[in-house]
Amino acid sequence: MIAQLGLYLSYPFVRYALIVGVLIALCSSLLGVTLVLKRFSFIGDGLSHVAFGAMAIASVLRLSNQMALVLPLTVLSAVLLLRTGQNTKIKGDAAIAMISVGALAFGYLIMNVFSTSSNLSGDVCSTLFGSTSILTLRPLDVWVCGILSVVVIAVFVFFYNRIFAVTFDESFAVSAGTAADRYNLLIAVVIAVIIVLAMNLVGSLLISALVIFPAISAMRVYKSFRSVTICSAVLSVLCALLGILISILAGTPVGSTIVAVDVAGFFLCCLAGRIRGGA
């Protein structure tokens, strides 16, 4: 098995997949804690559907770099969703449900009507579940992904204390002179970037799992914000690595294998939390 793994690792596309997978897993886990605690998880889910719709448009337009369209559209939706969530009397989650289901429907419609591809259901399936795209990465994709990941991580580290403050207690943060609105916006934009990145890895339906599972698992075991954040980052990277390796060796779809490993990690953490709590 080791020899087989060594053989696979000599292929550049496998190495790209591993690099991109680790970076995406790291980024997506960082804001997971904030997302879960701020009850923003649904925004992530809604945005991933928007990203699917944008991806459909991009592939119909035959854009060579789909990211150029998907990223701005998703960021824009993140900003809009955050606005509707805050200001209107209509519950924010209704607006999010509308946007996300609408984007999903339109995405499939556009793909179905305009697509010239001979394998339509294969295209849709890989956009939703990311079955093959991670193994077809070009060096350019790896660079774009790497740069965006570095930006996301830098933003997170730089604003770490303020993100904590806004997550824990928004009213207090405002009273202490922190512009909470601005940081909420920042969080939404970063989430949008992460979702677009993660779409390459696990497809748009499974992104939320990548964002939420490591955070919830880490919260079972650790008790301070910093240790939860670090643990969720480590956990996410390990699960992604393991998932990608399993999928290469066993020939399973990458995205769902990673998420399955994340789910297993969650149950292990639950168990670990029990044991720690009981002792």
Partner: peptide
């Protein structure tokens, strides 16, 4: 949210 927030 704060009552079970993981923070030291």
């Amino acid at each position: 949210v704060q009552r079970d927030f993981p923070a030291s």
